[in-house]
Structure formats: structure tokens, C-alpha cells
Design a protein around this nucleic acid. Sequence first.
DNA 1: CTAACATATGAATACATATTCATATGTAGA
DNA 2: TCTACATATGAATATGTATTCATATGTTAG
Lengths: 118, 118
Amino acid sequence: MSEFMDRCAVECFHPETVGRVKGNRLSEEEVRKLSEIFKALGDETRIKLLHALSQEELCVCDLSKVVEMSQSLVSHQLRVLRNLRLVKYRKEGKMVYYSLDDEHIINLFTQGLAHIRH
Amino acid sequence: MSEFMDRCAVECFHPETVGRVKGNRLSEEEVRKLSEIFKALGDETRIKLLHALSQEELCVCDLSKVVEMSQSLVSHQLRVLRNLRLVKYRKEGKMVYYSLDDEHIINLFTQGLAHIRH
DNA sequence: CTAACATATGAATACATATTCATATGTAGA
DNA sequence: TCTACATATGAATATGTATTCATATGTTAG
């Protein structure tokens, strides 16, 4: 309603359609969280990290070798994934092993791949 | 190999593990396209647009009312979605009706929602 | 304790991108 | 033709963020 209702007033506007679709809209919270998750997946480095972890648990050092990026960058990006609870970790001596925290991620990958392969 | 192999040399490095995981890695093309798709979904405005279109075909004017954002912004974001073949359009007189181009998107939403709802 | 190693993090930088504003394009009707 | 309307788009701006570098934290071994 309100400020976006005062344009395009006569011909195009379909009040019932707009009302119907608005009635089914996601909550602001859902929109925020969804975009947060997808934003985390929308980066090549994080895609590579998550895909590697989808195969097996890995320490930071091995992860940085798999994705061929610096340890610093890998640590930074792992923090992003940690904050979103996409990965979890386990300490063993001075090493830290990361793994997926939520196997839903694998399904998102599968769907994404299905899309890009037409 | 090469530049990321010269650190962390003795204790942590697990050559078989790294080799095994690297063997299964996605191609650069797949990584690029996957991140592109997820990047497109990683924005609140585009999430709202796609969710609205997942319900029914809508013209730009009605879309801008549903998501309560300016027509200009909606057009800009629709172009992003168009370029990625996430939406398609149909002209009817001076109006343009948009709809989802690939129903896989709905599955991505479903998986994403499953994630954020624990 | 000290030294070496694995990881984390703060600061700086460079680049991307969401949004707004103004304006252009295209269409229908008078 | 001219006017009104629906949509698209270029430019400008402001904000976000990926990456690098230097350094800090924490752990194990000696």
C-alpha cells in the first residue's frame, strides 16, 4: 500500500492480483535469512570450500590446498560459513577440522547444478 | 599443487586426502555458474520478486506494488534475473509480464526454507 | 621457558553492486 | 501528429565485501 500505490494508477494495476500475491509473501525474517544463505553460496571460494567439505571433513591446511587459496583467505571465509551455521568444526591439537553442519546444503548444490545443466 | 604446497609442510598436510578431494572438485565453469545463480538469489529484493513470480505471472507495475519498491529498481533487478534466465517475459501492449523461466528455482527456495527453519 | 606450527583476525584496499534519479524507449489512443 | 502511460536504462552514489598483508592466538614439542 501507500507510497507505491500512487503511480500506474488506471490501466495496469490489478488490485486483486496484487492483493492475492501479497497475501502469500514471505515474512521479512524469512526473506532476510534466505538471502543471507544464498549470499553465502554466491561466492566462488565458498562454493569450492563447501563442495570440498561435502566430500569429507578437512583441516584448514588441507582445505587451502584443495581450493588453492591462502590459509588466511580460507580462514576468513570459513568464519562466514561458521557464522551462518553452514559448517561446524572440531579441534584436535593445533589443527581444526571443518565439516558441513547441515546436509541441506548438499541438496542446494544438487538443485543448483540441475539448473545450470539445463 | 605449486604455490600452496610450500607451507604447512609436515604435520598437517595429508596428500592422499587432498588428492582425493581435489579429484572430485567441480569444474571452474560449474563453480562460476553456481556462484552466479546463488549470487542472484542472495538479495532481498530479488528473493521477493522471485517468490512473487513463483505464485503467478505478473506485470512490472504489479510486481513493484507487491514488493513495495520503485518501478526503476524492479526493472533493474528483473534485468539481472533475465540475464541469468531465471525469469522470462511476454509483452502485451505496453505492458510486460514476467514469470519464472525455470521451476528449479522453486526447489531452491524450498531447500533454503528447510534450512532456515532448522 | 622457547621455538615452530596451525589457525584466526584486524586493517587496508580494491572491486562489485544495490539503489536512486533523471531520462529514454516503445506503445496505444485521440 | 501529440499525449499519456508502462517499462527500460545510463549515470552517480553509497554501501558491501573479497582478498591480501601483517600479526595475534593457541597448541605441541623440546
